[in-house]
């Protein structure tokens, strides 16, 4: 069986669990628990271990999707996920600038451990106060447009939109782009 592992990461409330549920053919392994500390301000439940989704598209071919834990604690689980992944997508809620620093921390963590292809998926871009892609890239530390990974808009609630995001990530991987 040939398997590709994609990691879906991002700050709390960016839409990671929803993203995986929208594309997975199996019931997502749900590790959501009642949120504690500051996460409770954003959502009642958050992912404490990780979400797991699967998409089999051939007798010997499958895509596995792993969502990182929601709360801002980088433990061994993150390390395992990123080291076993082929590519990852960083989801960022465009209307929550207070989460940009958290997204930047995640990027720092990921980049230090792995140079696998990645793209940025902007969610909630239609919400009031949403920042545009160019400014979010700057806020995440990408100052040179030529060295910025692809940035796409994605609606985690829509299967088609999530499929497009995964296509973008896979195509980026096919180009062998290391960002």
């Amino acid at each position: 069986m040939e398997i590709m592992r994609l990691v879906v990461t991002g700050p709390v409330g960016a839409g990671k669990s929803t993203f995986i549920r929208s594309v997975s053919e199996i019931e997502v392994v749900d590790t959501d628990r009642r949120a504690t500390d500051e996460t409770l301000m954003l959502k009642k439940r958050t992912t404490v271990a990780f979400d797991f989704g699967r998409l089999q598209f051939g007798p010997e071919m499958a895509l596995h999707l792993y969502g990182t834990p929601g709360q801002s604690r980088f433990d061994f689980m993150w390390d395992i996920l990123i080291r076993k992944a082929h590519a990852y997508i960083l989801l960022v809620a465009a209307h929550r600038p207070h989460e940009f620093r958290s997204a930047r921390r995640i990027l720092g963590f990921m980049k230090q451990r792995s140079q696998i292809p990645m793209i940025i998926g902007l969610t909630h871009t239609d919400c009031p106060g949403a920042w545009d892609a160019e400014n979010i890239a700057i806020a995440l530390g990408y100052l040179d447009a030529n060295r910025c990974p692809p940035i796409i808009t994605v609606n985690p609630n829509q299967s088609a939109s999530v499929a497009e995001a995964v296509i973008a990530l896979v195509q980026h991987s096919m180009q062998g782009c290391l960002v």
Binding site: F57, L81, R83, I116, A163
Partner: peptide, 29 residues
């Protein structure tokens, strides 16, 4: 809840083939 694929110590992911990626893109389209 850890799936079997991840239950080993962290090592680098093995590469996937170009045909795998093309099939996946076709399926997602």
């Amino acid at each position: 809840t850890e799936p079997a694929e991840l239950s080993v110590a962290p090592t680098e992911a093995s590469a996937v083939s170009q045909s795998f990626l093309q099939n996946l893109v076709g399926f997602l389209r």
